[in-house]
Simulated scan of single mutants.
Amino acid sequence: MTGFIISEREGGIVTLTLNRPEKRNAISTRGECDEVVDAVEALRRDDTVRCIILTGAGTSFCAGGDLKGMRDRTGITQGDTAAEMRESYRRGIQRIPLALYELDIPTIAAMNGPAIGAGLDLACMCDIRIASEKAIFAESFVKVGIVPGDGGAFLLPRVVGMSKALEMSLTGEAINAAEALACGLVSRVVAPDDLLPTARALAEKIAANPPQAVRLTKRLLREGQHLRLSTLLEMSAAFQALAHDTRDHREAVAAMLEKRAPSFEGR
Rank of each mutant, 00 (worst) to 15 (best):
V160R: 07
S60A: 15
A135S: 15
D47H: 10
R222L: 15
I5W: 02
M256R: 13
R95A: 04
V14H: 01
G161W: 12
S263N: 08
M70E: 10
G117A: 14
E251Q: 10
I116T: 13
A57P: 00
A83K: 11
L122P: 05
G161T: 11
I105R: 01
A180G: 15
P197T: 06
G119I: 09
R20C: 00
L166R: 14
S169I: 09
I93V: 14
D80Q: 13
D34E: 14
I146D: 06
A191I: 00
G119V: 10
A208F: 10
D121Q: 10
G119N: 06
A110V: 04
M1C: 06
E133S: 15
G75T: 04
A213C: 08
F4Q: 02
A123L: 08
E167R: 11
L156F: 03
A99V: 02
A238C: 00
I108S: 04
D121R: 05
R91E: 09
A255L: 03
L185P: 10
I5Q: 02
G31C: 00
A255T: 02
G152Q: 01
V14C: 06
Q94M: 15
I116P: 00
G145S: 12
A82Q: 04
G11C: 09
G117T: 07
E84H: 07
A177H: 06
A191L: 13
D194N: 13
P106D: 06
T48I: 05
G79M: 04
V36P: 04
A99Q: 04
R215A: 09
G75K: 01
R247D: 14
A261D: 11
L221W: 11
M162K: 15
M70S: 07
A182Y: 02
V186W: 08
A118G: 11
G266M: 01
A39V: 01
T246D: 07
A254E: 12
G145R: 10
L221C: 09
T17H: 03
M111T: 10
H244V: 07
P97N: 07
I13T: 06
K259A: 12
R45E: 15
L196H: 11
R90L: 12
I206W: 02
T231N: 13
T17V: 14
R228H: 10
G69K: 01
G92I: 03
A243M: 12
T198M: 10
